[in-house]
Design a binder for these strands. Structure first.
Length: 493
RNA sequence: CGGGGUGUAGCGCAGUCCGGUUAGCGUAUCUGCUUUGGGAGCAGAGGGUCCCGGGUUCGAAUCCCGGUUCCCCGACCA
């Protein structure tokens, strides 16, 4: 466990407690068939719930609705889109039987050979196929379009090597699946959702991201174009934090989904899909954590403020309780979430350290001195500084402080990324630079061969072709052939 | 599936080379007293299939044979 923690937060040494408050590897069986599943513990899940809540609101503001589709997908569905099956076939869990029976030798149970399924079921690795099989029945005319559905679900991908949060065998995510009458509308949808993801990452997670297009080799299986947001972690490696795909008419053709247009002609439906997963939790941890533990952005913290009483006896505690009740009420009425930890089985110092490990943005400490002076000690997690302020207007002070912390940790991450993004013009220079980590902006001739060569020799991949920024053409750093613009290279998770 | 490492208390580990008390340390847990403005101190207690199976030996965590787990690197990976 210690090793995994170090991987997630490379600068930290002693994180097992706080990390285990978020997630642990599932302890399922001696046999290795289930390796790579995770248990998200209550505190970790509370962070995920905050993320879900904000994302869901953003989806609804952009006109989407939630639905739910089956976990099991008939094997034949998966093979209907050629690229799609090729992309996922190697990591699918397959259900072959539907019943157990008592073992003849009296020990435990065995799979009943008589209960073999006529057609095997795949546990969804993603839901394009089962959803488009459903959409076929929902769409006849242009009046049925667009369909703008999202689903919150779990998916299974049987990865050869897993990593908590970043690549687990089973993970939680949302997947949006939309159907449109025109190419333009579908493309606009894919772009819009990329913007939603970028806004969520930057405004809520305080994680700066690059928006871009994926190269052909990194494209989603079955997509015409894949857009992604890419973030830079503290160890210099890149993390793909969310994707939005323009699927063209590929799935409509595979599942024969046609609609009648206004002018009476028949055409295939245009599609998009887009998703983010519990991988975002990994991004959050790896972007902001420091040697004292997790640092949470105030907008996603399960509680934004923790209050710790410091007392010598019961009488003093009850006076502090009374004072804190007033502060808590004021904070809550300003929309600030508060936890008052007056448990008497932990000492104040222990609590201070504990809530720093948990990343709570602001801590208030109230003791005898403060009772005398009508003050409270305010400590901020991002800078680890503290000061004593008056209890009057505490809600305004803390509200402002939470905003400052949100901005400050974004700025810190943004500055880190800026300091670790370089332009490189020669392949030799590239090979030196890639060892230092970070984003490298370099010219590329646009061919998969060059991309593959660079990956082979340096383990760096093209993270994206940015949608924004410098658009100046140049010459490929490897082949010298013309390049339309610089692309982003990095080593990635 | 190839290369390397590993398995001992809830967690983290030492001991293994060179066999020999009742298998130990840190932490966590429990009890008592004292403490409480940065992870408290002292005293005591509980907790073990030393990965599994076989072998050698008076005696095995330790040596031998076989199996196996997990981790790392590679292959794989919207």
């Amino acid at each position: 466990m210690a090793k995994e923690i170090k991987e997630l937060t490379p600068r930290a040494e002693n994180f097992s407690r706080w990390y285990q408050d978020l997630v642990v590897k599932a302890d399922l069986a001696e046999n290795s068939a289930v390796r790579g599943c995770m248990v998200i513990k209550p505190y970790g899940y509370a962070i995920w719930e905050k993320m879900q809540q904000e994302l869901d609101r953003m989806f609804k503001e952009t006109g989407h609705v939630n639905a739910y589709f089956p976990l099991f997908i008939p094997k034949s569905f998966l093979s209907k889109e050629a690229d799609h099956v090729e992309g996922f076939a190697k990591e699918c869990a397959v259900v072959t039987h539907y019943r157990l029976k008592n073992s003849p030798d009296g020990k435990g149970v065995i799979v009943d050979p008589d209960a073999k399924l006529e057609e095997e079921l795949i546990v969804r690795p993603t839901s394009e196929t089962i959803i488009w099989n459903t959409y076929k029945n929902w769409i006849q005319s242009y009046r049925d379009l667009p369909i703008l559905c999202n689903q919150w679900a779990n998916v299974v991908r049987w990865e050869m090597r897993t990593r908590l949060f970043l690549r687990t065998a089973e993970f939680l995510w949302q997947e949006g699946h939309t159907a449109h009458a025109t190419r333009e509308e579908a493309e606009a949808e894919a772009h819009q959702m990329l913007e939603v993801y970028a806004a969520f990452a930057e405004n809520f997670m305080a994680v700066p991201v690059l928006k871009g297009v994926k190269s052909a080799s990194e494209r989603f299986a079955g997509a015409v174009e894949t857009f992604a947001i890419e973030a830079l972690m503290q160890d210099g490696k890149a993390l793909q934090a969310g994707t939005s795909h323009f699927l063209g008419q590929n799935f409509a053709k595979a599942f024969d989904v046609m609609f009648t247009a206004k002018n009476g002609t028949q055409d295939y439906v245009w599609a998009t899909s887009w998703g983010v997963s519990t991988r975002l939790m990994g991004a959050l941890v790896m972007t902001h954590s420091d040697d004292n533990g997790l640092v949470l952005p105030p907008k996603l913290a399960p509680y934004q403020v923790v209050i710790v009483p410091i007392y010598k006896n019961e009488e003093q505690l009850s006076r502090i309780n009374e004072k804190v009740a007033g502060i808590t009420a004021k904070l809550r009425s300003s929309g600030i979430s508060v936890k008052y930890d007056h448990s008497d089985n932990k000492k104040p110092g222990w609590k201070f350290a504990e809530y720093e490990l948990k990343g709570v943005p602001v801590r208030l400490a109230m003791g005898g001195r403060d009772l005398e002076n009508n003050t409270v000690e305010v400590a901020r997690r991002d800078t680890l500084t503290k000061e004593t302020v008056s209890c009057d207007n505490i809600e305004q002070y803390v509200g402002q402080l939470l905003d400052d912390i949100q901005k400050n940790i974004f700025k810190k991450a943004f500055d880190y990324r800026a300091a670790n993004t370089v332009k490189v013009d020669s392949y030799d220079e590239f090979k030196v630079q890639i060892e230092k980590g970070g984003f490298i902006l370099a010219h590329w001739d646009g061919t998969p061969e060059t991309e593959e060569l660079v990956k082979e020799e340096t383990k760096a991949t093209i993270r994206c072709i940015p949608l924004e920024g410098d658009q100046t053409p140049g010459k490929c750093m490897v082949t010298g052939k013309p390049s339309a613009r610089r692309v982003v290279f990095a080593r990635a998770y």
